[in-house]
Design a protein around this nucleic acid. Structure first.
Lengths: 235, 235, 235, 235
DNA sequence: AATGAATGAGCGTTCATTCAT
DNA sequence: AATGAATGAACGCTCATTCAT
């Protein structure tokens, strides 16, 4: 019940997912889809298994044929989300030919098409909201999904820096700064908060991309030059 | 909801005032501080009032002397967060003299000093996680805090555009894109997820600011353009 | 409130039907029977649902499979009492052939047999004790049960008056005066108060009936009048 | 809390009231009056001491200056009711001169004037509703109040029988039958149930008295005579 | 495989009671 | 004498989990 996370965790924390697969093969994804929707909507603790079952059109008992517990259901939901995210990432990054800027654009908008605007975006909100209650799950998601995305971004940046397209900069920080608007967009859309969509996701992403391109390019932006002039002769 | 609640949460164990009276006045904010910490940690539904009471050093019944229900406590927590956020915002923006870039810097790092690195940052996570369960609260927070922050940012951008410091751009989208890393930083720190703090918040914010400054400046930033040409022929 | 609930409360421990199904059907009336007993004994507020459940041999949670709340359980108890009372009343009054006096006797003693000496008598106490807390329930009980009983009594009196068997009198008051000892007997037995049963219910009802018959008859009853003169100059 | 009645009952059950009088002398009857009203309205268990205190215009703590517990308050309420009832009874019965019928009338209507229509009538409801929870209190009330009333009535009846005014009859049953409409009237009025006062209390009592007088008088009411005739030639 | 009745531990809330002021 | 803040045991209700069918 209370996902305090340090009980009966007999699954090897290492590599492949736990061998608790007995009936997982037949596990209908209607159940995890229903669970994802409700977990995202109400949060893990506030979601009742009755509601999950009802939304999937089965009885509550049936859930237990496929998942050992509510917690197991949560993990399965995240797991499915991870698979989807990784699949999408593979599509986005496969042997891209072109400028670093184009690659960057491809990553941003590809993410939107394949994750951000799908129900999978809710997984980000789930991780954000429940990571304290399910540290291993969050940890695992991190290693496999977030870090993967980071690596993709980082490689793109590095390519640009190497080619002179982009200026030199703190790559690690930049990666996080670039991902943040994506993640927040996902969370926002799952929460219907942080701005009742004043701007469309596309405009938002476009602006993000434009700011980035300029921000990354190797030009001197002479920040010191116009400063004194502003208060004096500004509009 | 409860009025008298703007004290710090660190109560010196011995003081001049009679402890009964002192307690009575300080209680509400002691309780909301405890509640904030636990709500952020475990989420609203998974937080037990026993734990809130215990963390505040009172009995469970005492909570009900100050708050009518768990939900009322939640609302009070957000309300206190709003007060703090608005106060901080006012301090950051009051009669600033200087360039738009300096103002932008001031807003970003001022947010960090007065919100982001304090427990108040947790309020953002709370809103993100619980807004579906408390739509009116989220709505209200939006109107009073988020929109307020947006307005400050927007004014700063507009000042820069007017002075020629910044290029013309989609202000609404830009405001959201600029705030996103801040909000995600707050959520990240409250969730201990999205990157076990690979980079320090300061480096992260600094990179964000630098990318921004360049991204906003009025130069043509054609990829691979020769360096020297930029400042000369800006749009 | 719950539909399927008109069985006796004595369930034979072994039967032909599969016990699961048998239980499911019999549950509601087993629960209301247990609740009636305890509500009558301790009052509504002082009765714990644990005790009701325990008395019915189920767990506390099971109550909520059949009744939405303690209040709903209360209403169901009264409703069942209404059904029983109305059924009994119908049997007592259906196409009675005989004198008004006989009908009166039949009503009084029929009430005793079918209500007064059964657990249903407790419903009267419940209504008396809880009507302020459940005004709509009391109102409803009144309209459907008490008024029904009144109408039966009133019809019997009117028949006697019309036939000359009874003298003319204030029917409404008389109906209430006649019912009062029945209701008080029901309350008394449910409360084990108002006289630790000094006289048997049968003797009590017999005396009530005899007083009534004489009180209703059409003779002049001048105190200390000579016996013989009475039947002669009636009216 | 739970008035299970067999705990810390160290008061001699016999004659004078328990020596728990420490501050009883100053005990303001506003408190018991408020308690009486609320106990009658909501029942003992459903009455909150906050409400009693508020109704009496004092703080909750003050109640405990005068009463050791909620149960003690209840007992005090009944005690005061007993005193009032006994005082009233004394007035009604004091050396009455006149016929037994007149005495009967005096008792009935005197009860109404001095008990039935005063708030003291609520005590009867309290006893009826709570006697199972406070058996000793009910027992005591019975011995001192109900039995006292019974004795008065019984003496009146006996006087009438002895004088030939009334016929011989089962005195004990008659006493109960005669009191029943009074007690039910008291309960009815305290519960606002059993007939939203279709008839006025006065008409009700008058009818009761008239039925009684006729029912008690020594005439032959020839119940057997008109019986057969009814169905034959009745209206 | 699927159901849904049953369970019981757990939590939000109430309120009689206490006690420092 | 009077207050009202504080307590904690108790109760209504929920819901994850089990299991007989």
């Amino acid at each position: 019940m209370r996902p305090d996370a340090t009980r009966s965790e007999s699954n090897p924390p290492a590599d492949s997912l736990p061998p608790r697969r007995r009936r997982k093969d037949a596990r209908p994804s209607e159940l995890t889809a229903a669970a994802l929707a409700l977990f995202v909507d109400k949060g893990f603790a506030a979601t009742r298994l009755d509601d999950v079952a009802a939304r999937a059109g089965v009885s509550k008992g049936t859930l237990y044929l496929y998942f050992d517990s509510k917690e197991a259901l949560f993990k399965a939901v995240i797991e499915e989300g991870m698979v989807a995210a990784l699949t999408a990432a593979e599509q986005r990054s496969s042997d891209f030919q072109g400028s670093a800027a184009d690659l960057l654009q491809q990553l941003l908008f590809g993410w939107w098409e394949q994750i951000g605007k799908t129900p999978m975006a809710g997984v980000s909100k789930l991780i954000a909201c429940e990571s304290k209650n399910f540290p291993e799950v969050a940890q695992y998601y991190h290693e496999r999904v977030i870090n993967r995305g980071r690596a993709l971004l980082r490689a793109a940046l590095q390519r640009g820096v190497a080619s002179g397209e982009f200026r030199a900069l703190d790559l690690d920080s930049a990666v996080e700064v670039i991902m943040a608007p994506l993640l927040l967009l996902a969370i926002s859309r799952s929460s219907r908060c942080f701005g009742e969509q004043q701007t469309s996701p596309e405009a938002y992403l476009q602006t993000h991309f434009e700011l980035l391109l300029r921000g990354l390019c190797g030009t001197e932006c002479v920040p010191a030059a116009p400063r004194g002039a502003v208060t004096g002769s500004g509009a």
